[in-house]
Design a protein around this nucleic acid. Structure first.
Length: 516
DNA sequence: AAAAAAC
């Protein structure tokens, strides 16, 4: 057992840790913190739930505490694959940087640029970002990465899955080669290995045991649903939730559309449920998560955006409404319960058409979970009723082969009929119709990157001498540096007064700002 | 076969 006090952290940082109530470091923390404090690169191979976030946040806070931020020049960068994950890292900074003057900003998509830009202009020590928004700020000339001394890449293998590797490479190239990098990944596929070989400098490799695929605290059960009709599955889900006596639960679906439908259906049936997935408004996503964390919301209906990495404490139940596409996802999903010594229950609804995915899950976990019998009458669920039909907005979706529905066959989207007005409301997925069709970005890891043409030229030619810590004589347009103590967050560098040459758009920059 | 991430 390693105590935090044995790791070489400063008294201020240790106090912040003590305030959170933690005393014992996890294995990844015990191994990574001393290495990181010594300024070495870290290659951390660790799953979520191993205490990874604190493993890089704590040494970062410690190492940065003595310096100060310059306008638009962060000293440290944390890149995370999803917005929620980035938000979580930010929460970690909020806790651990409490006793310092360090500032941080969260740069994620889905929220306005205004506040983020304001913070960048004022100068922040640490940027916590998703790749897209970070590069967006860079292209707008709002950000220089030439002052980055520390960089963290979190969940690298997930970034690979999401096609972010070219972005990560680009960010690496925009930061000075001589910086400290802390790189985390749960697995090491070849592309990730290549990346670490290219950008890490003699890293210390720290590998913590992959947590058992099935945590002993989790009771797994499966529920056989005799029909693949979504209506039957929803019926089973409701019965299950009632029977299970949940405190808090997450219902995982494979598709965003299904998340919406299931959440709506549960709400209509009087359950305290809300959806979360990547097409929902970001403020909504954050609010739903906050409600769920605080206990104000009991049931979270989620896509796999919530399967990994999210720190959601004390979930008593996980329901796999759909058998996950990847068996790995099953492990991540049920890992949302049974954490920190608590017990948890995980259920999986299995329909006749799920056999393939189901087999993969069984193979991975090595045994077949016990079956939970619900003793339900599914006949309503598979009977096609017509009453509600005229009230439903179909949004141009094809109703097609209605007649041949015996209730057993495979169908496309949930087109099931409903038996009550409430069901109609639950089943009419207006949300789907209102959702703007998303333009998918092409996966860029397949294409060669375009040469960068719109880099903010003046920023590139960042003259070191033009940003003296203490200029002998005042330079026009440059804020004289004052003593740090007479002001809590004085920005050093250009501050709000940007010299005219910097403010002048270069053709490239102007193009970047006006393009679409 | 789907989710995630920039306007």
């Amino acid at each position: 057992m390693t105590e935090f006090s044995d790791l070489g952290l400063s008294p201020t940082t240790l106090q912040a840790v003590a305030d959170t109530g933690y005393t014992t470091a996890t294995p990844i923390q015990a191994q990574a913190i001393p290495v990181a404090l010594a300024g070495q690169d870290v290659l951390g191979i660790a799953q979520t739930g191993t205490g990874k976030t604190a493993a890089f946040t704590l040494p970062m806070v410690d190492r940065l505490a003595s310096g100060r931020a310059k306008a638009r020049m962060p000293r440290a960068l944390v890149i995370a694959p999803t917005r929620e994950l980035a938000d979580q890292v930010a929460a970690s900074f909020e806790k651990y940087a409490k006793g310092t003057k360090l500032s941080w900003a969260l740069l994620i998509g889905g929220v306005s640029f205004g506040d983020q830009e304001k913070k960048l202009d004022r100068g922040v020590d640490v940027l916590i970002a998703t790749p897209g928004r970070l590069l967006d700020h860079f292209e707008r000339g709002k950000l220089l990465m030439t002052g980055v001394q520390m960089m963290v890449v979190d969940e690298a293998d997930r970034m690979l899955d999401m096609g972010f590797i070219p972005d990560i490479e680009r960010i690496f190239k925009l930061t000075p080669p001589k910086k400290q990098t802390l790189f985390f990944s749960a697995t090491m596929p070849p592309e990730i290995t290549r990346l670490t070989k290219q950008f890490l400098r003699d890293p210390v490799r720290i590998e913590v045991a992959r947590p058992a695929t099935t945590n002993a605290n989790i009771t797994q059960r499966l529920v056989k649903v005799p029909s693949s009709d979504p209506k039957a599955k929803r019926l089973a889900l409701r019965a299950l939730i009632e029977k299970a006596g949940i405190e808090t639960g997450i219902v995982f679906c494979n598709r965003k559309t299904e998340v919406d439908i299931v959440a709506k259906s549960l709400k209509v049936h009087g359950f305290d449920a809300a959806p979360i997935h990547g097409d929902l408004d970001q403020t909504q996503r954050m609010k739903t998560l906050a409600d769920f964390r605080s206990g104000a919301l009991k049931i979270l209906v989620a896509s796999d955006v919530a399967a990994r990495g999210l720190d959601i404490p004390a979930v008593s139940h996980v329901f796999n409404y759909d058998v996950p596409h990847h068996a790995d996802d099953y492990v991540h999903r049920i890992g949302r319960t049974g954490r920190a010594g608590r017990t948890g229950e995980a259920y999986m609804l299995v329909t006749p058409s799920d056999d393939k995915g189901f087999d993969k899950v069984i193979k991975l976990i090595g045994s077949t979970p016990e079956e939970e019998k619900l003793d339900l009458d599914y006949s309503n669920a598979v009977t096609v009723k017509r009453e509600g039909d005229r009230d439903r907005k179909r949004g141009g979706r094809d109703r097609g082969d209605r007649e041949e529905r015996g209730g057993r066959g495979r169908r496309g989207r949930s087109e099931d009929a409903a038996e009550t007005p409430a069901e109609v409301a639950a089943d009419a997925p207006e949300a789907l119709e209102e959702r703007p069709a998303r333009e998918r970005r092409p996966r860029r890891d397949r294409e060669p990157r375009e040469p960068r043409t719109v880099a903010p030229a003046p920023i590139e030619a960042e003259p070191r001498a033009a940003r003296p810590e203490r200029p002998e004589r005042p330079v026009r347009g440059v804020q004289p540096v004052r003593d740090r103590d007479d002001d809590d967050r004085r920005v050093v560098g250009f501050g709000a007064d940007i010299p005219a040459f910097l403010a002048r758009p270069t053709p490239g920059v102007a193009k970047a700002n006006t393009d679409n």
